[in-house]
């Protein structure tokens, strides 16, 4: 297809190509999904047994009632 014929003059800016360690955007997306999975598994393992028995998922109606910027729990602080 035409794309391959124009690879030398197209394919984005040089600076864009420099912005990732991956082959392309798609590979970077998959890398992000894998890294997120690793983070989640690590956190789940680290907090195993620390969670009190919960009331499962929040009900949809209660989520909609949440006002902007206000949560009952103080969210994770911006500082460690």
């Amino acid at each position: 297809m035409a794309d391959s014929q124009q690879d030398d003059k197209n394919q984005g800016s040089p600076s864009e190509n420099k912005m990732t360690l991956f082959r392309d955007d798609r590979s970077e997306d998959i890398g992000a999904i894998l890294l997120a999975a690793v983070v989640i598994v690590t956190i789940v393992v680290l907090t195993m047994g620390k969670n009190p028995s919960s009331s499962n998922a929040p009900s949809p109606s209660s989520s909609a009632a949440t006002s902007a910027g206000s949560v009952e729990n103080p969210p994770a602080s911006s500082r460690p």
């Binding site: 907090t47 209660s62 949440t66």
Partner: peptide, 13 residues
């Protein structure tokens, strides 16, 4: 739990 307003506090996870 995700800690929404009016609900249970957020879980440790």
């Amino acid at each position: 739990d995700v800690g929404i307003k009016g609900g249970p506090p957020a879980s440790e996870t």
